[in-house]
Design a protein around this nucleic acid. Structure first.
Lengths: 252, 252
DNA sequence: CGTTGAGTTGACCATCGTCAACAGGAGTGG
DNA sequence: CCACTCCTGTTGACGATGGTCAACTCAACG
């Protein structure tokens, strides 16, 4: 399944307050989905999956494209099938806090408030399975196993948030960066990636805003880790040379 | 309803890994509950409330008493009816991050993992409504309105976590303290307290570990705010003299 | 009256933020 | 093809914010 087939469905959001959800539709083939095994859909049997296919819309977002904005009415839930999403909130003075990254297999929109509490953007070209709110809600309510999976994800969501709080509250800059590299690697590992490398699709500024640091400090810290032969930096990637040392630095 | 009537049910936990849940039982009278209107129980009609009463156990924890420990098997959910609870996690090197405080009307244990992901302690003498996991789960599964309320609370929980992340990642010490005072006041206001004062049942160390600061910095910051006539500090309380200024300092 | 624990204050210093310059790659237009 | 800009990332110099260590106050308690 190539990304190319979705290029034509690239979205231009119309931004209206009460406008209908502005996402274009493309065909969905759950049977071929790369993330089925690691996503909430794994709770479904073949029959239920066909039901889900019926309400799913495959959508593609280009790099830096907005998926939704803080304050927007929630009208959709998203299952990430490819790419990377950043979640963030802004202060009025412009400061930005990245609240997390969502990777293939992750779910977006579990908070189920009336309005989104944060914004979401594609970090790189990203494909998602979009579910309309009413359809998805009624499917969930009639499917306890799916509900349970979503509960599980919600717990994971809270866990992510707490992990970030631990990092920002108690760790030094070096500890935060080491923790970030390892935890992102672990999530990519779950999706089948290699264990001695972590892909960094997001720019340094995103990492900085996620870790509560400046871009300069992130850059400097990575340089120091490289100079100490703990990692090797390459564009959009970091190789782990001394994972043991990195783990020590990340504390826990 | 006086706290005194629960003194005899004070708990000593037996700590065993597979031991039955060690909480002592006392009578529950939901009709007289002070937090019914602001807790999840507000989703229930009279009949359902009687069902809930049947599975609820009122328990009291003394100051600094452990409610559960990180890693413990989850066997209970808690509705706080009085007092204050701190949630926290420890690093192996002893650093502590307080993940939040739970006040009357709040629910504790929504994460519904097999094991607790953080520890919980009473900050001051605290009363809770305890629900056994299997009983509560089956009650919830047969009551969509209660389920919806719990979902709502879970969203609130994620919101609290994100707010803390915003504070730790982007705010200065003074901004964090101002934000902490205001947000705690707002939650106490919801429960009917006055608007120009915030009760601080927790010691400075808890505030410091919540805000990712040291106890000295918290103390100094409060002193500065008092010297600038923004607040007045009194034991376990802070009065708001210039709330407008405090709001400015808290950013947003 | 001594002890203990919570909170405050001061002196000093490390970490990390700020500001600035620079390097390298991608895209653009002459 | 080259010059140019733009964007991302790196590096350096310097200073402010907040951490560390220590002393001290005060109230509660025996």
């Amino acid at each position: 399944m190539t990304l190319g087939s979705y290029v034509d469905s690239r979205v231009v959001r119309n931004g209206g307050e009460n406008a209908p959800c502005p996402y274009r539709i493309a065909g969905v083939d759950c049977g071929n989905c790369a993330v089925r095994a690691i996503s909430v859909c794994s709770a479904l049997d073949a029959g239920e999956r066909i039901q889900l296919e019926g309400i799913a819309q495959r959508t593609r977002f280009g790099s830096k494209e907005t998926i939704f904005l803080e304050g927007d009415r929630t009208c959709s839930f998203f299952n990430i099938t490819g790419g990377t999403v950043r979640m963030f909130r802004l202060f009025r003075n412009g400061r930005r806090q990245v609240l997390g990254f969502r990777l293939p297999g992750d779910f977006l929109g579990l908070e189920l408030d009336d309005r989104h509490r944060f914004s979401a953007e594609a970090v790189e070209p990203t494909t998602v399975c979009r579910f309309g709110k009413p359809q998805f809600t009624s499917l969930v309510e009639s499917n306890p196993r799916l509900l349970r999976k979503l509960h599980e994800r919600t717990g994971q969501e809270i866990g992510f948030a707490h992990d970030q709080t631990m990092a920002l509250g108690q760790r030094s800059a070096q500890e935060r960066v080491a923790w970030f590299l390892l935890s992102l690697r672990d999530r990519q590992k779950n999706a089948g990636s290699a264990t001695d490398v972590v892909k960094l699709p997001m720019p340094r500024q995103d990492i900085a805003d996620f870790l509560g640091l400046t871009i300069e400090t992130v850059s400097r810290t990575l340089t120091v880790l490289a100079r100490e032969n703990v990692i090797v930096i390459s564009p959009r990637k970091v190789y782990f040379v001394d994972e043991c040392q990195l783990t020590k630095l990340a504390v826990s």
